[in-house]
């Protein structure tokens, strides 16, 4: 195992504290690198019979990540997590409507800034290898237009890609090598934020862990890393904090130590149920299902399944708030 300063330092508690305060402009020096407040992404669709409906696929999502940290956003596949990555990078489909506030290095992340920063300050590691050009040798793809041959060779060496690999086409590489090429593409520039969307599909646990450790290293060198994944076990191995994604929003953002400590340390009833449902912690199924993006209830998205639910829960928006060194979107969490 590579050595790294693993998770549980006090500093990480502080970062999670701050993300609620990011919009208050009192202490510019303490802004986290990336802060997202109340992000919503909506799509307008035509249903059968041409009735127009609006799908809210991301709703009032808040989170933050700072340099030196690995943040894992964990949630079921198909629940809209990828849209979060696309929203930060500014590559959402044209029919998406976005609201809320994102800041990067303390300044608002406008569409124009996203375009300037993409690839230079903010890098993307996609889930799909379709992001590679099948007809271009991988060495040239990694080098890109702004970097030198030496830089390409250095980054290949770093990720254990032999020099001859530069002359191969994507289809000639194994799944694990392709993953490393995608990371190499992202980090050849000295970026400060890396967004990785399901970066380990189809890899064995050992190979996936290897990829995750590369992300850990990149964070330890002073970058911020945001990993979107459905696999909470992978998050356990390298992340400093986990943000729990549910039906298009974040219910809880907590330091890794709390996920290790168990349900009492966690805040949101869903996160507690999630912990108890893990095969290694009881495998206890909590009843109910996530609401469908076209039929989100008013108030708390968890109210139907929640054992703590009261009438207030179903009225108005439930705000994300700071609690015990983490963030939670629940009015009754203690």
């Amino acid at each position: 195992m590579t050595t790294h300063t693993h998770p549980h330092t006090h500093q990480h508690y502080l970062h999670i504290h701050e993300h609620d305060l990011a919009s208050t402009h009192h202490h510019p020096a303490t802004y986290p690198l990336l802060s997202i407040r109340d992000l919503s992404v909506r799509f307008t669709q035509y249903e059968r019979g041409l009735r127009q409906i609006t799908l809210e696929t991301v709703s009032s999502l808040s989170l933050s990540v700072d340099v030196g940290e690995v943040l894992a956003v964990v949630g079921a596949s198909g629940s809209g997590k990828s849209l979060l990555a696309q929203a930060i990078l500014g590559i959402l489909p044209a029919n998406a409507r976005i609201s809320g506030k994102m800041t990067f290095q303390g300044q608002e992340l406008t569409a124009q800034r996203q375009q300037q920063l993409r690839g230079r300050e903010i890098a993307f590691v996609p889930q799909s290898v379709d992001y590679l050009d099948p007809l271009m040798k991988v060495g040239r793809q990694v080098q890109g237009v702004r970097n030198s041959r030496q830089q390409q060779q250095a980054v290949f060496e770093r990720y254990g890609l032999a020099p001859f690999v530069a002359h191969l086409y994507p289809f000639q590489l194994s799944g694990g090598m392709l993953r490393r090429v995608l990371i190499a593409c992202a980090v050849i520039e000295d970026v400060s934020l890396i967004i990785a969307d399901e970066p380990t599909p189809g890899l064995s646990h050992a190979a996936a862990l290897e990829v995750m450790r590369h992300f850990r290293e990149l964070a330890d060198e002073g970058r911020a890393v945001l990993i979107i994944t459905h696999d909470i076990n992978l998050a356990f191995d390298v992340a400093d904090s986990i943000a729990v994604f549910y039906a298009g929003t974040i219910f809880e953002h907590a330091p890794m130590a709390d996920f290790i400590a168990g349900p009492d340390a966690l805040r949101h009833p869903y996160t507690k149920a999630l912990y108890r449902a893990l095969p290694k912690h009881g495998f206890k199924p909590h009843p109910g299902t996530q609401p469908y993006a076209g039929a989100l209830p008013a108030g708390c998205l968890y109210a139907k399944r929640c054992e703590w639910s009261t009438p207030e829960c179903e009225q108005g928006t439930i705000e994300m708030r700071a609690l015990r060194g983490g963030m939670v979107r629940c009015i009754h969490a203690l």
Binding site: S79, H230, P279, P285, H286, P287, T289
Partner: peptide, 13 residues
Amino acid sequence: TMLDVITQAQLWE
């Protein structure tokens, strides 16, 4: 594989 752990536990039960 692609489901959240609660749904996973529900299906297996």
